[in-house]
Amino acid sequence: MMPKQDVIPEQTAVSWPIVMSVSMAGMRRRFSRAMITMVGVVLAIAFLCYMLLNETFVQSMIAEGSDDLNILLQNANVDILSGGGTDQMTVLLIGLTLLTSLVGIINAMLMAVTERVREIGTLKCLGATDQFVVRTYFVESAVQGVCGSALGMVLGLVVSMVVNLKTYGWFALKTFPAGGVVVALLVSLGAGAVLSVVAAIIPAYMAARKQPVEALRVEE
């Protein structure tokens, strides 16, 4: 009765720059909300970075083995014999902070999805694939995460430097563990990036599942 339907060609994947521009435009428009989400990341990563840096500083100062410095270290309640390693409680605390920040980002991203149901529906009516929608949310979360981590990294470094200079004076600079600091900074940045990408999984999936019908719903 009906002729055989046309073969539908493979849909061309939308290039990343387009995805980027759509999600960046979205973030510019909702700048204040993006900022609030970012503050959560900044604080968590700053804390992580600060703890990592302190550990490096202390270890490097213990290795120095100077008597004056050891007195300062003892005054600062550092357990010299254990090599200045981070204790279990601290690890737990860092983990908890990161987890809280993760939940915060998920919450913010879920809100972004609910808020934009009609927008997602419209995009799908225009021919956006699920993949495109997923990508925009991942890009949005990743950009927030990486910017937040970078800021958090700087904040953690500044606070750590101030605290260490205040406690140990010029020893902090004399024994400055450049390699360790770089590693600590990179770990913080990486943790933030991973955190934000993991946080985007559920919201992006939910966004992709929204139906184009939603676009037709009239807001009351």
């Binding site: 539908i8 021919g127 699920d130 009239v218 807001e219």
Partner: peptide, 15 residues
């Protein structure tokens, strides 16, 4: 379906 909506149909909405 995404292809169909993209190439065959144009949508205009009330809002």
């Amino acid at each position: 379906l995404a292809w169909l909506r993209c190439h065959k149909i144009g949508y205009i909405f009330q809002s």
